[in-house]
Write a protein that binds this DNA or RNA. Structure first.
Length: 391
DNA sequence: AGCCCTTTGAAGCTA
DNA sequence: TAGCTTCAAAGGGCT
């Protein structure tokens, strides 16, 4: 399988994903870098201290520099800055985990030069460098009602006792909450009404119509910020990260409500099951969601397994900065997820029964399935199958 | 109906 | 701590 820059740091998504950027030419752009650091450090601090996500232009400019090496220098510099900021911030920020990330690269290209106001609650989007529409960040609603340990979700969650694992101000810059609290957020507070995921004219899924109300068109990134006890917004918009434990999501429903699967079945009322909080999507999953329709249109494929193979190859073909957009987006999602569901663990979604059964099956199969799959992949000559197109 | 496939990444578990 | 497993999305295919 083709790998980017096999010389270390290939795992862009790992916690130290940008570490590899260290050893690459830092002298290339010192002048620009200095200008950048002063400006963007101020931005960064501002974004950490202030709940506004402003100063789009400078950030955009940084992202649009586009040169790979420059980007690496940028990452490295930012890592240093972030460490510094992390210290200033009382260590709330998990520098080891995310220090390499260019937090400032998140911009909102659809907002003409800083039209986003601190209270606008616009969804942050990632600068798209290859013509893709913006991938909006998920706006998790408040877990206020979900987490019993959370009497309320203050605007500044750092004040929330017992929650130390994320830097809320950073998030607040992207998921800025209105001064009066999340309940003031209205459906109009979404990003620009452009299709989130471009669909071919043939139309694969209809819910992306720009004419649809934003509140229902973009399920995962719904701005439904208030939840009821079952993950439902008072307006009826389900929370994207909460689904009933009823197995696979129906895709159409998913498209409308991303994480949340409505449970209209009256049968369910008998046994009120715990709503399932889904894992936040990782970078590749976000990429897949965005590009799946495109691949389907291009390749006229329907099998997800085949589509995912293509997407996997394309993922590896992305530049680091292109991937970084998704890593950053995923990081934001994780942060927000952690803020909203501080007591949630990925383990919560482990199906113990199935897990045991599968393990038994694996044992009886005489080997580990995934290992077999990996071995199979390794047997394939990656150099002969680099097609990013339909095969 | 429910699992498999197929991808990458994050998180959890185990030795 | 390294290595492995599970889950996240997706939807056709299969049992």
């Amino acid at each position: 399988m083709p790998q980017l820059n096999s010389g270390g740091g290939d795992d862009l998504g790992a916690n130290d994903e940008m570490i590899s950027f260290k050893d690459e030419g830092e002298q290339d752009e010192k002048i620009q870098e200095n200008a950048f650091t002063e400006r963007d450090l101020a931005d960064l601090k501002s974004s950490l201290v202030n709940e506004s996500e402003i100063n789009q232009n400078s950030n955009t400019a940084v992202v649009r520099r586009g040169h790979h090496d420059e980007q690496r220098v940028y990452h490295e510099k930012h890592r240093e800055h972030l460490e510094d900021v992390s210290k200033q911030d009382g260590g709330m920020y998990k520098a080891p985990a995310y220090s390499g990330y260019p937090f400032l690269m998140l911009t909102d290209p659809y907002l003409p030069s800083g039209t986003m106001s601190p209270s606008s609650n616009k969804v942050s989007v990632v600068q798209q460098s290859h013509g893709m529409p913006p991938l909006p960040l998920l706006q998790y609603p408040s877990a206020d009602h979900f987490n019993p340990n959370s009497p309320h979700l203050p605007t500044d969650m750092s004040q929330k006792p017992g929650i130390h694992r994320h830097q809320s101000q950073d998030l607040s810059g992207f998921y800025s909450l209105p001064p009066g609290g999340v309940s003031q957020i209205s459906p109009s507070m979404s990003w620009q009404p452009q299709p989130v995921y471009p669909l071919p004219s043939c139309g694969f899924r209809q819910p992306y119509s720009s004419s649809l109300p934003s509140s229902s068109s973009y399920p995962r990134f719904s701005h439904s910020l208030m939840l009821g006890p079952s993950g439902m917004h008072p307006t009826g918009i389900p929370h994207p990260a909460i689904v009933p434990p009823s197995g696979k999501q129906e895709h159409d429903q998913y498209d409308r409500n991303m994480y949340a699967k409505p449970h209209p079945e009256p049968k369910r009322e008998k046994e009120p099951k715990k709503p399932v909080i889904k894992k936040p999507l990782n970078a590749f999953m976000l990429y897949m969601k965005e590009m799946r329709a495109k691949v389907i249109a291009e390749c006229t494929l329907k099998e997800s397994a085949a589509i995912n193979q293509i997407l996997g190859r394309r993922w590896h073909a992305l530049t680091r900065e292109e991937q970084a957009k998704y890593y950053e987006l995923a990081r934001k999602e994780r942060q927000l997820h952690m803020q909203l569901y501080p007591s949630w663990s990925a383990r919560d979604n482990y199906d113990a029964g199935l897990r045991g059964a599968r393990e038994e099956k694996r044992k009886s199969d005489g080997g580990k399935k995934k290992r077999r799959k990996r071995e199979k992949q390794q047997q394939q000559d990656p150099t002969t199958d680099n097609s990013l197109d339909c095969s």
